[in-house]
Design a protein around this nucleic acid. Structure first.
Lengths: 297, 297
DNA sequence: AGAATTGCCTGACTCAAGTCAGAGAACTGC
DNA sequence: GCAGTTCTCTGACTTGAGTCAGGCAATTCT
């Protein structure tokens, strides 16, 4: 890793944690512990299941329980049993809670103002633009790509979204039965691979690799959630799959795609794929691509 | 303040504190409390006075004392009396302390790597560039400009540096006695104004305003420390002084400068000053500038 | 020389932020 | 209907990060 880069990142970390950290304490942590404030914020307007809160914030069950009890004692939230499963508890804000949340909101705004205020207008523009860039790229770097079983609930979730989107995008609609769909087994080692991308634990993308042909591996079912787009995840998937295909001794990577998926097509081209004649008779495909790969170690 | 800007900043704060914060805890806070680690870091290679440490980190005297005792008990630092003033205590790292600091250093590097590693090379470049920008502008926004007495130790410190730099920059050298120097009284209300800029409490710039003439105010002794340059501080000084001159009923702002100070000259031009004929006989000046200002409320 | 100040340390607190091990209620599968 | 599982709560802890008041020693002021 480039030493100059590391140095920059370290310097950034230092400046930002100092500057933002100090302000967070002065503004947000004024009359309510930060833990409570975070929770209050995360509950949101329409309420949440407690376990979801815990998961999102990565907190201990007992701890959350106590935090909520404190908030409830202050009349800011109401904790009640879930109507369908009375073990599960649901929290929602009271009017007072909503008001308190507004206060936190205003403080967040004040914090942001305190950062911007001393700057000249032109500097503000630049700072905000750079922040957007850092934000986007740090989010990108927080995405974790891991092998997973195509039958895992997260995988199913991704595939459902994938099919739903295809249905919307294709002018002919999309019926999975008519497509040349690999079943889960084909995307599971040793017949294939399946990767899931997660952001803060939530699935935001998937990709499968079919190793049926001894020469060519085929990329299938690549999907990226709308909220995770423009983070370079598609490219990461392709790189990962190319590597895996190479490791499995394949010398060619193939995929097909529909004419409605422009972004996908330009991704493939940018990644070194070239368009070729149809190599299968997938009814929903209009374009076929392939790329030679160096076999791995 | 622009709502879209505020929103961006808030989003940035959230992403960054989550992403960097979590990693800091996992990497840096592993086997040593963060407070101790920060202290260990801040002591530096060649040791520090305890009170300076306290000031730098903004910590309570008792707290620092305890933290140092803990570090000393682990054999990482040696705390001893200052040779010249035995009330003051000085800390320096032992060999073990240095080694521990190295470990922290490596962890910082690991943290930086963890941020960069999942990204493609091109994304890394962009992230690092954006971080540099955010870093620079947040530093700029952390600079506090305040009125101060020109006799204050911080003011003296700035002026000494200022004179030293003039001596270096001018091919003729610089002898304060020969210059038309306003004495401190002339820069003190009601005869004038004096501002100091501080970054984390340390003086990094100053500027004076002379209100001797009933029509024209004169900017004097504007200096920005090397480490605080390129942060738009010069411009901030000029804006502040223009405002104060207006508030004092002056309709003209004047200043003179030496030919060696290129950066200063372009700052003045960018800020709306125009070069005029000499309005005084300052021996070290080669250029004279003025700008009309709207009298303030 | 005596008084005031400065710099540091100590003891006695507070508070937030968790962790861990049960316990008990509610649900699910058989 | 029973066993096992899931979800939450409670009590009993720990740790880190401070704060605050007082006190002692060294230094400076007068």
């Amino acid at each position: 890793m480039d030493a100059a880069h590391i140095d920059r990142v370290r310097h950034f970390n230092r400046t930002v944690t100092e500057r933002v950290g100090v302000l967070q304490n002065t503004y947000l942590g004024r009359d309510r512990p930060l833990g409570q404030a975070r929770l209050l914020w995360e509950i949101g307007e329409q309420g949440q299941d407690v376990r979801r809160l815990r998961e999102r914030l990565g907190l201990d069950s007992g701890y959350v329980s106590r935090l909520l009890a404190a908030l409830a004692a202050d009349g800011l939230v109401i904790v009640e049993a879930h109507p369908r499963d009375r073990r599960v508890r649901t929290v929602r804000l009271t009017a007072a809670g909503r008001a308190e949340r507004e206060v936190l909101d205003e403080r967040s705004d004040d914090l942001a103002c305190a950062l911007l205020e001393p700057l000249a207008p032109e500097q503000r523009e630049r700072l905000v633009a750079a922040m957007a860039e850092v934000d986007r790229l740090l989010t990108a770097s927080a995405v974790v790509v891991e092998p997973a079983d195509p039958g895992h609930p997260d995988a199913r979730h991704c595939l459902e979204r994938y099919f739903a989107e295809l249905g919307d995008a294709f002018d002919t609609g999309f019926e999975p039965e008519r497509s040349l769909l690999p079943d889960a087994g084909e995307l599971r080692p040793p017949h294939g691979e399946f990767l899931i991308a997660r952001l803060h634990g939530e699935p935001v993308g998937c990709v499968g690799l079919k190793l049926a042909d001894p020469r060519a591996a085929e990329v299938k079912r690549m999907w990226v959630a709308p909220r995770a787009r423009r983070l370079g995840l598609g490219r990461r998937f392709l790189v990962a799959m190319e590597e895996r295909a190479g490791a499995a001794g394949r010398s060619l990577l193939r995929l097909d795609t529909n004419k409605a998926l422009d972004a996908a097509r330009s991704l493939y081209l940018a990644h070194g794929f070239r368009e070729v004649a149809p190599f299968n008779d997938e009814p929903y495909a209009h374009h076929w691509f392939e790329k030679s790969i160096a076999p791995g170690a």
